[in-house]
């Protein structure tokens, strides 16, 4: 079981980094497409896909 954990650990860590980056960006950005709290839910619950969708559609390009 420990070897399984060692194998899965990088995936979990990278996924976590992606989520944290998305959340930090969400806090710092002045405005998003749609309400910010909705994007927070999408990022936290949507795993990889949620963060990807936020980066592509959520960021309002000024």
């Amino acid at each position: 079981m420990s070897s399984l954990l060692m194998m899965l650990l990088p995936i979990i860590i990278i996924q976590f980094i992606l989520m944290i980056v998305a959340l930090i960006d969400l806090v710092k950005i002045p405005q998003t497409n749609g309400p910010k709290w909705l994007w927070a839910i999408v990022i936290v619950c949507g795993n990889i896909i949620g963060s990807i969708i936020y980066f592509i559609f959520g960021r309002k390009q000024v």
């Binding site: 995936i11 990278i14 980056v21 990807i52 390009q61």
Partner: peptide, 16 residues
């Protein structure tokens, strides 16, 4: 706009 960060992360995730 963090493209340099999130695109490699996503590709690496899907790769492994």
């Amino acid at each position: 706009n963090l493209k340099i960060l999130w695109i490699p992360i996503v590709f690496v995730l899907y790769g492994i």
